[in-house]
């Protein structure tokens, strides 16, 4: 790993750590949320940006992590550490099943199949309303959210925990895309026929990408539930499948650092506009159309194209 790559990504983490001491309470809380959602975007980017598979159903993995964590924690009282693990495993298992089925299709059919599976997961959450309490959701008590002795409901600990998870996801994917296996994913994105001719097992690499992507998304979902104490069906709705696509497109698909800036930018755009109108999803719609029309590379993608060709 070259020094400037390390400096750039380490620098981002250092800046975020410094901001912990500098930011006023409101933005401090927002940034914690942005970092957890950025993990979700990073997970999405592994599949979309690096493997070239556009999923319209990632909310199911986010929700699998969130409910896989929240339900055992709330109803079985297994403790936050085991519950987090349960969330990861649920998301990974769901990703494996969905990957095995959906990867038999490609292109537009893959998008619709993932959309439909995600819708089925959302409806199942509503159907199991007895436990999930549907749209109303489950509120996690403060006492339940103690992770290895750390009280995650405390704003300072929450920020640092979010930062730790974000750093972990960032460096994990940075490492992954520089591995030989990660290079194969990029080769599949660029031309899967050619990658197949070179002798790579395309299906297994794609399946691995779905599972890794789903697990990171699930980790983000589980962490979101733990850190903000709420597990609800809204996070399984179609909107939450569209958001990571929007964030990654905005930040730059196929860049490590892009998804974070996509989330940051979009979060504040929606935060500001929701003060003016209740139709804040209008911003998301306009952003999607403009991005596909004028900047399919996104912020970091444009930067890489013009200035920093080394950007991973």
């Amino acid at each position: 790993m070259t020094a400037r790559v390390l400096a750039l990504h380490g620098g981002l983490i250092a800046v975020l750590l410094a901001l912990h001491f500098l930011l006023p309470a409101y933005h401090h809380g927002n940034l914690a949320r942005v970092m957890v959602l950025a993990c979700y975007a990073i997970g999405y980017n592994v599949l979309f940006g690096y493997t070239g598979l556009l999923s319209l159903g990632h909310a199911m993995f986010f929700a699998a992590g969130m409910y896989g964590m929240g339900l055992p924690l709330h109803f079985l009282g297994i403790g936050a550490e085991l519950a987090f693990l349960a969330g990861l495993l649920s998301a990974a298992a769901l990703a494996l099943v969905v990957g095995l089925l959906a990867l038999r299709t490609a292109g537009v059919a893959f998008m619709i199949v993932t959309l439909m599976f995600s819708e089925a997961v959302y409806l199942t959450i509503l159907l199991a309303g007895k436990w999930t309490r549907g749209d109303e959701g489950v509120v996690l008590e403060r006492a339940e959210r103690v992770f290895f002795g750390l009280d995650l409901s405390d704003p300072d600990i929450r920020y640092l925990a979010a930062l730790a998870l974000f750093a972990l996801c960032l460096f994990l994917t940075l490492w992954l895309v520089r591995q030989p296996a990660g290079r194969v994913l990029i080769a599949i994105r660029e031309n899967d026929e050619r990658a197949r001719l070179l002798g790579y097992d395309i299906f297994r690499h794609k399946l691995a990408a779905v599972v890794i992507s789903g697990t990171i998304s699930g980790a983000a979902g589980a962490a979101y539930g733990l850190l903000f104490g709420y597990v609800g069906a809204t996070f399984a709705e179609v909107q939450y499948s569209i958001f990571p696509l929007l964030w990654v497109l905005l930040g730059g698909a196929g860049t490590i650092i892009g998804p974070f800036f996509g989330v940051l930018f979009m979060f504040y755009l929606i935060d500001l506009s929701s003060g003016i109108t209740s139709a804040y999803m209008l911003i998301a719609g306009i952003a999607l159309v403009l991005l596909t029309l004028f900047a399919p590379q996104g912020l970091a993608g444009e930067l890489r194209r013009r200035r920093m060709r080394w950007l991973p």
Binding site: L54, L56, G107, V108, M111, I242, L245, L249, T277, S278, A279, Y280, M281, L282, A284, G285, I286, A287, L288, V289, L290, L291, T292, L293, P296
Partner: peptide
């Protein structure tokens, strides 16, 4: 037209269109 009817980019753009129409109606 400007997306050359690329299947994947068109889906993303029509998702955007979906939200634009829906939210303008809400307003």
């Amino acid at each position: 037209k400007h997306l050359d009817y690329d299947p994947e980019r068109t889906i993303v753009a029509t998702i955007g269109l979906l939200y634009i129409l829906q939210q303008l109606t809400l307003m």
